[in-house]
Simulated assay, not measured.
Amino acid sequence: MEVCHIISALQGDHVDQAIITTPPTTASQIYDWLRRRVQTTDLPPGARISETEIAAEIGISRQPVREAFIRLAADGLAEVKPQRGTYIGKISVGAVLSARLIREAVESDLTKMVAQLRPKDGLAAMQAQIDLQKQYLGPDDVECFVESDDRFHRQLAIAAGHEAVWNDLERLKAQINRLRHLSMRVFDRQHTIDQHQLILNALTAGDSYAAEAAMRAHLRQILDDMPQIRQAQPEFFTD
């Protein structure tokens, strides 16, 4: 088990340890397992996936795998092509832009709430994630870094008293997550850490204007990163 998975489990971030420590067996577990592989680009955009091969890999029948494929297709993460098979969907630029716009609007409001509340425990939890991110700067640490990045933003929602809002955002940002895993392999992760620290410093000072501005700048970074990633790997994207 990777260290970041252990940390996440200990911090109570709703990690299903059965998926991490044992092969998935139910349709729901298989869906979570495949979704994770898609979002980390372990299964890259455009890759063909086979019910038969995956069922054989984990030693189960094809039916729960088929159900998981259907859910991935409903999420826009897989595409069933008649007579050809099932393929991992390409990253939708339109879906990324829409989800980013919604996320900026929601998290900017959460940021203003937290700047007014300044909850000591919540701010400390966000700082703990920044400290963890500093340990995840190596080439093999991308998944751990992105998980800690997500926990930083989840802690913001928790500190504002709206954890359920983050859960809603998580369902929206499947396409963003794939792009983030690609960008974190290319761009300096220290820049993201610095942005997180700037947000947190403003929150700690109770400066809602500066905190909101820092959050908006942070969430708009993807607008600069995506064209470069798309140019380098155009086969991964669709409009």
Rank of each mutant, 00 (worst) to 15 (best):
Ile88His: 01
Pro24Trp: 06
Asp16Gln: 02
Val114Glu: 04
Lys120Cys: 03
Ile158Leu: 12
Gln135Leu: 14
Arg118Glu: 05
Thr41Phe: 09
Ala56His: 11
Thr40Tyr: 10
Ile70Gly: 02
Pro64Ile: 07
Arg154Cys: 04
Ile7Ser: 04
Cys4His: 13
Ile19Met: 04
Glu163Asp: 11
Val38Met: 05
Gly122Ser: 01
Glu212Phe: 00
Ile7Thr: 10
Ala99Tyr: 09
Ile20Gln: 12
Glu51Gln: 14
Leu223Asp: 09
Leu101Val: 08
Val186Pro: 03
Gln197Ile: 00
Lys173Ile: 13
Ala202Asn: 02
Asp239Gly: 06
Glu170His: 13
His5Thr: 03
Glu163Leu: 08
Gln127Thr: 00
Ser28Lys: 14
Arg220Ala: 11
Pro119Ile: 06
Pro234Phe: 01
Pro82Val: 03
Gly12Ala: 03
Gly206Ile: 01
Gly138His: 09
Gln116Ala: 15
Ile199Leu: 11
Leu117Asn: 03
Ile130Arg: 05
His218Glu: 02
Gln129Asp: 15
Ile7Gln: 08
Leu137His: 01
Phe152Lys: 11
Tyr31Asn: 05
Ala47His: 10
Arg48Glu: 12
Tyr87Trp: 11
Thr40Val: 05
Gln197Phe: 00
Asp109Gln: 13
Gln233Trp: 07
Leu223Met: 07
Gln233His: 14
Ser28Ala: 15
Val93Asp: 12
Phe145Pro: 04
Ala205His: 02
Val80Tyr: 15
Arg178Ala: 03
Ala47Ser: 13
Val165Tyr: 03
Asp32Met: 10
Leu169Met: 14
Val114Met: 01
Thr111Phe: 08
Val15Met: 11
Asp239Lys: 10
Leu203Arg: 01
Arg48Asn: 04
Tyr87Phe: 15
Lys173Ser: 13
Gln190Ile: 04
Arg154Asn: 09
Arg230Cys: 09
Gln11Thr: 11
Ser61Thr: 14
Ala68Ser: 11
Ala74Val: 03
Asp194Pro: 07
Asp140Leu: 09
Asp75Arg: 08
Gln17Val: 15
Ala174His: 15
Thr41Cys: 14
Ile222Gly: 03
Val65Pro: 06
Thr26Ala: 07
Leu101Met: 12
His191Leu: 15
Ile102Phe: 12
Arg66Leu: 13
His5Ala: 10
Leu198Asn: 08
Pro44Met: 04
Ala78Pro: 07
Ala217Pro: 00
Glu170Asp: 14
Gln197Lys: 03
Glu104Ser: 13
Gln135Cys: 07
